[in-house]
Computed example of a mutant assay.
Amino acid sequence: MSIFNQILELDEDDTHDFSREMVEEYYSQAAQTFKDMDAALAKKDLTKLSDLGHFLKGSSATLGVTRVQNSCEKIQRYGQLRDEEKGIDLDNKQALDLIAQLVTQVKSEYAAAEKWMRNWYKSE
């Protein structure tokens, strides 16, 4: 919430046009990133998955969407064949299995965040 509130402070007035535009761009980026993740997962392209995780991690961090940010960081690391939490290297199959689970999870986390943000802007 604190990061989202900082974004709201950038608005020049109560219309929230600036922050709304940022959030709408985030929705668009996330939708495309999820399509790209699905395609990269089907191709078993770990490098692309890592890059996409990194990209969405940054966009999510900008708006304070922490759960999505954290899951995307894991996708990024798994794509690099690394499990930082366990401190181990992964093989391709392990990484792909973990990423497949995380892609489902991150889509759910994103959907909850999107719903919350859309409701917030409706109530304004």
Rank of each mutant, 00 (worst) to 15 (best):
L81I: 04
D14S: 13
F34C: 05
I3W: 10
E84S: 14
K57N: 11
M1Q: 15
L90F: 03
Q101W: 01
W120K: 08
K74W: 04
G64V: 08
S59P: 01
M22H: 01
N70M: 14
L63T: 03
E85F: 01
Q6P: 01
V68K: 06
A40H: 00
K35A: 15
D45R: 06
S60W: 05
E12Q: 15
L49K: 05
K115R: 13
K93Q: 14
I75N: 03
T66K: 10
N119L: 14
Q105E: 09
H54L: 14
A61S: 12
L81P: 05
A40R: 00
T104H: 14
R77C: 06
N92P: 05
V65T: 10
D51C: 11
M37I: 12
A113F: 04
K57I: 11
E25Q: 12
H16M: 13
L8I: 15
L63N: 00
V23C: 07
Y121K: 06
L56F: 03
L90T: 05
S2C: 00
T66H: 04
E73D: 12
L52H: 02
D91E: 09
D11H: 07
Y110K: 06
M1E: 14
I75G: 02
W120F: 15
L49R: 09
E24K: 11
Y27G: 04
K122F: 03
A40L: 04
F18E: 00
Q101T: 05
